[in-house]
Amino acid sequence: MNTAASRERILGRVRRALADVPHDELPEGHPVARDYLSTHGQHTPIESVDLLARNLTDYRALVHRSDEAGLPVLLSRLLAARGARRVVVPTGLPDRWLAEAPVDIVTDSASAALSPGELDAIDSVVTGCALAIAETGTVVLDAGPDQGRRSISLVPDHHLCVVRIADQVVDSVPQALLRLAPDRPLTWISGPSATSDIELDRVEGVHGPRTLEVILVAGDPRPTSAYPFDVRS
């Protein structure tokens, strides 16, 4: 359909409505003072990770810590505790992570994508993340190879998300936005799905995963050891 006429009508109305704005004022000419803080408080890397863990826990995520070597055992234990049998993973998840887990692993990719109905029959999903934000207790997924399509971390009821302490924890929202790529689909996750719609009584778990477990891993759990370098500032 052709909405070109409405486009011109709306833009014309906007321009007439703004007759009071000086013609030579550039869009950036209206000042925006960015004197707010880039982080709230100074944290050492260890303090930032502690803050992240505290804030995640505060919003009912389950937080675990591990080193690189212990990750496969921990993941195996968490999946067993949950009774998970079928686990979906993205193509870029290191094989080693689930090497110890006695589960059926289903790999999802854009070319071999599980349908929503198939995902609904999956018990758990294991992903990495793009970064985590300490001040808000948030993990951010950007559909990278170790995170996969957005739907795999949405439909299953149990999400295990691995965060590399060395290079994936930032302090604040402004720092996070600097590192994220807008052209990727982004999902910011702060605790499990929740609602306060009934008498403002908070209930964890409506449509997204009702259980979110975040594993904070020291060292570099990836197979290639081109890291770790600390990119936090």
Partner: peptide, 10 residues
């Protein structure tokens, strides 16, 4: 501090 889910798509 942050709502449970924020989606961004381009």
């Amino acid at each position: 501090r942050m709502n449970p889910y924020t989606s961004m798509w381009t």
